[in-house]
Amino acid sequence: MRDAPDLPARRMAALVETRVRRPGAIADAAARRRRPASVLGEHGKLMIIAADHPARGALRAGADALAMADRARLLERLCAALARPGVNGVLGTADVLEDLLLLGVLDDKVVIGSMNRGGLAGTAFEMDDRFTAYDPDSIAAAGFAGGKMLLRIDPDDAGTVSTLDACGRAVSGLAANGLMAMVEPFIAHRVQGRVRNELTAEAMIRAVTVAAGLGATSAYTWLKVPVVADMARVMRSTTLPALILGGEVPADADGAYGRWRAALGLPGVQGLVIGRSLLYPPRGSVADAVDRAVNLL
């Protein structure tokens, strides 16, 4: 199955057939995978394509509410992105990463397993980010580089402490295996029934400092943060390496690329983690959008 990126119906059928008749092929593919010598690419940064949104029920990309619901289309776009020079990593849940393993496109890639996907988008329990996907042991067994967790801190929700506790244990568990713990922190509030992240410098500083202190050691902890106003002040609040996240598909793509470029010039910022903005660009191809992002590095 190594002639990706195009993914016609016959190849989707082959993935299903493998899962039905040879489920052990997934572990075999993980064991055979050629692993990178470093988390950094030739450009000296980490460039990761994110694809863990569907597992949280977040399927929208731009105006299309179900863009990421078409698995063949998503995999085709992921394969196209991963084939571009300078892209050296991918982030996803087991179902997506295992499809990519079977397609043979993860050699020499930094693979990050997404861990807590229990806070489903748009639900009454969205703030309850339980760990429903990878755990430290399964990430280590698969030979991946680390795990990513979402940490939303709601000052008015006592349940936040459960997520803090789970993230702290995950950070410790990953570090015990020498694996990266990628923490994505926000101060969040429920407004008119919907969860909103507070994207101010003050809120991000508080979220970053809380995230940095999780676990028995921060030696393997990286942060995944959005670009906000006064980003330099945010980055002065920690010595931990940070990756800039892309977020939703921007209406102003030029503005988004400009903000990413400026953030990449700050001490501590070590690369990009971008999903929908590159996989479903408002204009142009996936390859064009990815190449433009890589050129920022």
Rank of each mutant, 00 (worst) to 15 (best):
L97I: 11
G265K: 11
G265N: 10
A51Q: 01
R60E: 09
R169I: 05
M1D: 07
Q270L: 10
V87W: 04
V16T: 14
R283C: 07
R19I: 07
P155N: 08
L199A: 13
L82S: 05
G143P: 00
L46A: 15
T123A: 03
F125D: 14
A251Q: 13
A207C: 04
G119Q: 05
T221P: 07
T239F: 10
G246R: 05
G215H: 04
S162R: 12
R194I: 13
K224A: 02
A142K: 13
L101H: 08
L296D: 04
S172K: 02
T18L: 15
S38F: 07
P155Q: 06
L272K: 05
R283H: 12
L103P: 10
A203M: 11
L74I: 01
L103R: 09
P54T: 01
M149G: 10
R22K: 13
L66Y: 11
A9N: 10
D156E: 14
K45R: 15
R2P: 12
L15A: 04
A242D: 02
D135T: 12
L296F: 09
L245C: 05
I274A: 10
D291F: 03
L40W: 13
A256W: 08
R21G: 08
M204C: 11
L7S: 06
A27S: 12
D230Q: 12
L266R: 02
T238M: 03
L245K: 07
L214G: 07
V234K: 07
P136C: 06
A67T: 01
K224R: 08
G173A: 01
R169D: 15
G86C: 03
D99R: 02
R35Q: 11
G213H: 02
S162Y: 11
G62F: 05
V191Q: 14
E17G: 14
A27I: 06
T132V: 00
E98D: 15
A29N: 03
G284F: 00
A63H: 11
R35F: 06
E17P: 12
I26S: 08
I139P: 04
G113S: 05
D165A: 11
L106V: 06
V183G: 08
V273C: 14
V16G: 10
P85W: 07
A175E: 00
Y134H: 14
G265S: 11
V225I: 15
L150Y: 06
D230M: 03
R276D: 05
L174T: 02
A14R: 15
W260T: 02
A133K: 00
D230T: 04
L164Y: 04
L78A: 02
G147I: 05
E184N: 12
A25F: 06
D128S: 09
R19S: 10
R84C: 13
E76I: 00
E202W: 09
V234S: 03
T239V: 12
V90G: 05
A287R: 07
E17Q: 15
L101V: 07
A216Q: 14
T93H: 09
T217C: 08
L82R: 05
Q192N: 15
V228M: 02
V234D: 03
S237A: 15
R56C: 13
N177I: 01
W260G: 03
R259Q: 13
A287L: 08
P5W: 14
A80P: 01
L46V: 15
V249K: 01
